[in-house]
C-alpha cells in the first residue's frame, strides 16, 4: 500500500486554491459586515429620535464610564459658564438646559454627553478670548444634545460592540474605558447642523453672530502644532464649516457685531 494522495488530488481536501477560497470568505464576510453596519446605523437613527427624555436620562446613567468625576460643587469657573449657558437657554426656547463641567485637559475640545452635560476642557477655555466664542461652543453643544447626536453615536457603537461580541471578536474593554470619549465623534452632517442651530441660539441672545469662527481660529492655530496633527486629522473640514456658517448667516440675515471679552474667574478663586 503506498501513499495515495498528498497536497493535491486528495479526496479529504477540498479542490481549488486555498487562497482563492479564503478571498471568497473575506468577500462574503465583508458583505455581511457592511450590511450589518448600514442596517444598524439606519435602525439607530430611526429609534433615537423616538425615545422619551426619561429613557435618554436612564441610558445616560448606565454609561458609568462616561461620568466625569465631580465633587458635586461647581467651581467658580463652572458657575460663570453655567450662567452663560442659562442665558442662552432662556434666549432660545428650543435650546435645552445643560450642565457645564470643566475638565482639566490640555486638549482643545468640548463634548456633549447624552444626559445634557457639556464638558469643556481647560485647554479650550484658556485659548478663548471672547464670550461670544464660548457662547457659540455652548450653542453648538446644546444643538448636539437636542439632536441626540451623542446617543446616536453611542447607540451605533454599542450595537456594533454587541454584534462583535456575539461573533467573538469583541473585547469587554471598549465600554469601560473613559478614553472612549472619542466615541462621541459626530458625522459631518451632525456637526454642520449643530453649527447652524448653535448660531441661531447665539443670534437670539446677542442679536448678532460676531465671533462665530473663534473656535475654528483656535483649532487652526493648534493644528499648526505637530502634536495635535493626529487628533485634528478627524476634523479636516473646518474651512468648509466656516464657509457653511457664513452662508447660513447670510441666508438668515444675521449681522456681525462686536465681541464681548471673556472674563472667567481665576482657578481657586472662591470670592465669586
Amino acid at each position: 500500500m503506498r501513499g495515495e494522495y498528498g497536497f493535491s488530488d486528495n479526496p479529504n481536501v477540498s479542490k481549488g486554491s486555498p487562497l482563492l477560497g479564503a478571498l471568497k470568505v473575506f468577500a462574503a464576510a465583508a458583505v455581511l459586515v457592511g450590511t450589518l453596519y448600514f442596517s444598524i446605523g439606519i435602525a439607530v437613527d430611526a429609534v433615537v429620535p423616538l425615545l422619551p427624555d426619561s429613557t435618554v436620562q436612564s441610558i445616560s446613567k448606565r454609561m458609568d464610564w462616561i461620568r466625569i468625576p465631580s465633587g458635586g460643587k461647581m467651581t467658580p469657573v463652572e458657575q460663570s459658564i453655567q450662567r452663560l449657558a442659562d442665558r442662552l437657554a432662556e434666549a432660545d426656547p428650543d435650546a435645552p438646559r445643560i450642565r457645564v463641567r470643566v475638565v482639566p485637559s490640555d486638549m482643545v475640545n468640548a463634548f456633549a454627553l447624552p444626559d445634557g452635560t457639556v464638558l469643556l476642557n481647560t485647554g479650550l477655555l484658556a485659548r478663548l478670548e471672547s464670550e461670544n466664542g464660548l457662547a457659540f461652543i455652548l450653542g453648538h453643544e446644546m444643538a448636539h444634545i437636542r439632536n441626540r447626536d451623542a446617543l446616536r453615536g453611542l447607540g451605533r457603537a454599542m450595537a456594533y460592540q454587541m454584534v462583535a461580541e456575539a461573533v467573538g471578536f469583541g473585547s469587554e474593554q471598549v465600554f469601560s474605558d473613559p478614553a472612549q470619549l472619542s466615541e462621541l465623534a459626530f458625522s459631518r452632517g451632525q456637526e454642520e447642523r449643530a453649527d447652524r442651530e448653535g448660531m441661531d441660539t447665539v443670534q437670539k441672545l446677542y442679536g448678532h453672530v460676531g465671533g462665530y469662527d473663534e473656535f475654528f481660529r483656535i483649532m487652526q492655530r493648534e493644528r499648526a502644532q505637530e502634536a495635535w496633527a493626529a487628533y485634528f486629522s478627524t476634523h479636516p473640514h473646518d474651512d468648509r464649516r466656516i464657509q457653511l456658517m457664513q452662508e447660513h448667516s447670510d441666508d438668515m440675515g444675521y449681522v456681525m457685531g462686536s465681541e464681548t471679552p471673556l472674563i472667567l474667574p481665576r482657578d481657586g478663586d472662591e470670592s465669586l
Partner: peptide
C-alpha cells in the same frame, strides 16, 4: 479565515 467561514 475559519472563524469568518464559521459565521457564514
Amino acid at each position: 479565515v475559519g472563524l469568518l467561514h464559521s459565521l457564514l
